[in-house]
Computed example of a mutant assay.
Amino acid sequence: MSILGSYVRLAVDELERARRDPAWVEACLGARSEETHGALGAGWTGGERWCSTGTAWDALGFLTRRLGFPVDIAHGEEALPWSGSEGAGAGAAAWSYGPPRCLTPGQVRTAAAAMAATGGERLVGGVGPADLARADVYPVHAWEGGASLEGVVARYEELLPFFRAAAADGDALLVWLS
């Protein structure tokens, strides 16, 4: 089983509700996975509201931190309240790697601008699989095996239009690992 990075766009009122009501977030998103990205639950449908970095999330975090990105696009910024495992509903399993985090609309705009200014070539410039393995970047076994960074660049380039669209619409982003 792999750890996947996921994002969902939230309107400002949805972000406020997510901050107040962790059970709502858990009920809406459940145990999201890349294989089941069609429907988000609770009436949320369509890939335009959801995006995944697959297993590239940690490499993206490492590479963007290395470049001094102003926003943590891989993990989000603000941790949302989390009901935790005690007494939590079925959705708690979705947060087995920690509670979801969010990016506010302003942070999404800042991130989208930083991403637009940083192409994939610059993102991975001067870094190879051995560097990621030494830094213990997930999935370490892939980097130790000499996996190419092309997949990381592809995920980054898929993420850019998603961030741009969210920024243009004034949306926040919910970010989580599952």
Rank of each mutant, 00 (worst) to 15 (best):
R164Q: 10
T36F: 05
S178L: 06
D171R: 14
S6K: 14
A154L: 10
C51N: 11
R66C: 04
L63A: 03
R122D: 10
D13T: 14
A111M: 08
F163A: 10
A74Q: 06
V153I: 13
P139H: 08
F69L: 10
T53E: 01
A147H: 09
D13V: 13
A142G: 04
R66Y: 04
L63K: 01
E86G: 13
G84F: 14
P22N: 06
M115W: 04
G5I: 00
R109Q: 11
E144N: 11
E48G: 15
S2Y: 08
G128F: 05
S178M: 07
E26F: 05
L123V: 08
V153F: 13
D131Y: 01
G170A: 12
A147I: 04
A94E: 12
T64V: 06
W176Y: 09
E48N: 15
Y156E: 07
A111V: 09
H75F: 12
T104M: 01
W44Y: 15
A11H: 11
G54M: 08
S52D: 09
E77P: 00
G106M: 02
L15W: 00
L15T: 00
V12W: 04
W143N: 01
M115P: 07
G76H: 01
E35I: 04
E77F: 00
S6N: 14
V124Q: 04
S148Y: 07
E86R: 14
G91Q: 00
W24R: 12
P100E: 01
S96T: 10
G68V: 06
L159D: 02
L10C: 09
L40T: 09
H141Y: 14
A133S: 10
S85H: 07
S178V: 06
A18K: 07
P99C: 14
S148G: 08
D131P: 05
V152F: 06
G68S: 05
A42I: 04
E14V: 01
V8H: 13
W50Q: 08
L63G: 04
A135G: 04
T118F: 12
A27G: 14
R17N: 02
R32V: 11
A166Q: 05
A88P: 05
L40K: 09
L123I: 08
E34M: 10
L29E: 02
A167K: 11
A79V: 02
G89C: 04
F163I: 00
A27L: 13
G120Y: 03
D169S: 11
L4T: 15
R32T: 09
S83A: 12
P99M: 01
A113Y: 07
S52Q: 14
E157Q: 12
M115Q: 11
P22Y: 06
Y7G: 10
F62K: 12
T110A: 10
W143K: 00
G145F: 05
D136Q: 15
E14S: 02
A56V: 03
